[in-house]
Design a protein around this nucleic acid. Structure first.
Length: 455
DNA sequence: AAAAAAT
């Protein structure tokens, strides 16, 4: 099938496709159309950026008869809240002439709000596992008409912590249903899962590793330690002409806060941060500001690594070298999307060389190694105690809105001054209080993470 | 190994 015209779809869907300017289906869209239409179980092995949502949703929506019933008929489960928001947005776009009612539910939002939302009625529910399970248990969401189930990023969903939630949910769904799943990789866990829950599935596999990376230019630097990585990061990001929109991946939440802090000294409100300990409002704001070009640099954990469609990312910088090569593939896949050209940069310490080799083996491609600039300041290795303390800041643009008159810089100045005089205990106390008043969860874990090294 | 996901 070379054109969407060849798909037997309703007029409404054809209009929507035309509006979106799509003419040629991607490989996965062409391949999954017939199996999904026929009602058979489907297993799709596909990297992100291959048009997955469109691939399963088009035939599913097409088969949906108009109804006003409250209980949903299609359920989509994805691993992060941000993906819920994105998938809902996509479905609304191509379902706009088909009177499709789609609702997204996820944690971090008052559950009564979601109960009310669900009671309004929906054809399609998109959800993260935890909130979905809550809604099912409380009977706010009734599963009996769910005949189509889509699970995205299954390999992640089978990680410990996710998998019990997922299997609990599956037990509550009607046995007679069509199962559709997508996974970037086929692991033993995924295979086991398929045998347990799928009935004679059609398996399609597209985008063998290597091929979707044609429009991403990859570079690497070998650097002695973390602080030298930060120095190089600063030296690179100064070039605002080149680094127009840069996503910076770090290995964990603690280093996300730290790298944000270190970059903030140089780039102030050009930089933002996101990770799962931030409140939902903060997370949404960070992404919105980045999408709207209010910030140029976004520091993130792997929360942003998968599936998200961010516009015009010029660079992806990996401050750490992921020890699992798939993570690298997911991360750099945030750039070079939909024909665009992108650049990725990988930082590796001597200890991380082995991880880099694994990545190169998987891709069957050697990442071009760039010379360390002679002007680069090589840091001595600081101990954890010598690391700069993290000052928790609000999202800059949120502050500007909320604090009338007082600018973000004035406020942060004030904060750092008040913090300098006080005893450690008092500072912690202040931080807890501030964290509570603005609902930031990071400092709830302050003591738990104390002394834990980011690298 | 760390991330995310429920309060």
């Amino acid at each position: 099938m070379d054109s969407f015209q060849d798909f037997k779809l309703s007029k409404q869907l054809h209009y929507a496709i035309e509006d979106l300017g799509f003419t040629t289906p991607t490989e996965i869209q062409a391949q999954s159309f017939s199996p999904v239409m026929s009602g058979k179980d489907l297993v799709g092995i596909a990297q992100t950026g291959t048009g997955k949502t469109f691939a399963y949703m088009l035939p599913l929506i097409n088969g949906l008869k108009f109804s006003k019933q409250i209980d949903p008929r299609i359920l989509v489960i994805v691993p992060t809240r941000e993906l819920v928001i994105q998938v809902v947005d996509e479905i609304e776009k191509f379902g706009k002439y088909s009177s499709i009612r789609v609702k997204g539910v996820y944690g971090g939002v008052n559950i009564n709000q979601h109960k009310a939302l669900v009671m309004e009625g929906a054809d399609i529910i998109v959800a993260t596992p935890g909130r979905l399970y809550d809604l099912l248990l409380s009977r706010a969401l009734k599963p009996k008409h769910i005949k189509k189930l889509v699970i995205d990023e299954v390999d992640i969903m089978l990680d410990l912590g996710f998998r019990f939630q997922l299997t609990n949910i599956l037990e509550l769904l009607p046995a007679q249903r069509q199962n559709i799943m997508f996974s970037a990789t086929m692991t033993d866990d995924v295979e086991e899962f398929i045998t347990a829950f799928f009935k004679a599935p059609t398996t399609i596999s597209v985008a063998v590793s290597g091929t979707p990376l044609d429009n991403i230019t990859q570079y690497a630097y070998n650097l002695p330690n973390f602080h030298t990585k930060i120095n190089l990061l600063k030296d690179l990001l100064v070039d605002t002409e080149t680094y127009t929109k840069t996503l910076i991946f770090v290995p964990n939440k603690k280093s996300a806060d730290l790298v944000y802090e270190l970059l903030y000294d140089f780039f102030t409100s050009e930089v933002a941060v996101i990770h799962s300990n931030k409140t939902q409002n903060y997370r949404i704001r960070s992404i919105e500001d980045f999408n709207d070009n209010k910030t140029r640099i976004l520091v993130t954990t792997d929360i942003m690594a998968r599936g998200l469609d961010l516009e015009n990312i010029s660079h992806v910088i990996n401050v750490d070298t992921p020890r699992f090569p798939e993570n690298y593939m997911h991360r750099i896949g945030r750039t070079g999307r939909a024909e665009a050209q992108g650049t990725s940069i990988l930082f590796s310490t001597p200890a991380e060389q082995g991880f880099k080799e694994n990545i190169e083996t998987l891709m069957d491609h050697t990442i071009e190694l760039l010379e360390t600039p002679e002007t680069l300041e090589i840091s001595k290795l600081l101990t954890w105690e010598e690391q700069p303390k993290i000052i928790e800041r609000d999202n800059p643009h949120t502050i500007v809105e909320e604090e009338k008159g007082e600018s973000f810089h004035e406020k942060s100045e004030k904060n750092s001054k008040t913090n300098q005089g006080g005893s450690y205990k008092r500072i912690i106390k202040q931080k807890y209080k501030k964290a509570r008043t603005r609902g930031d969860k990071t400092y709830n874990k302050l003591n738990k993470n104390k002394g834990k090294k980011p690298f």
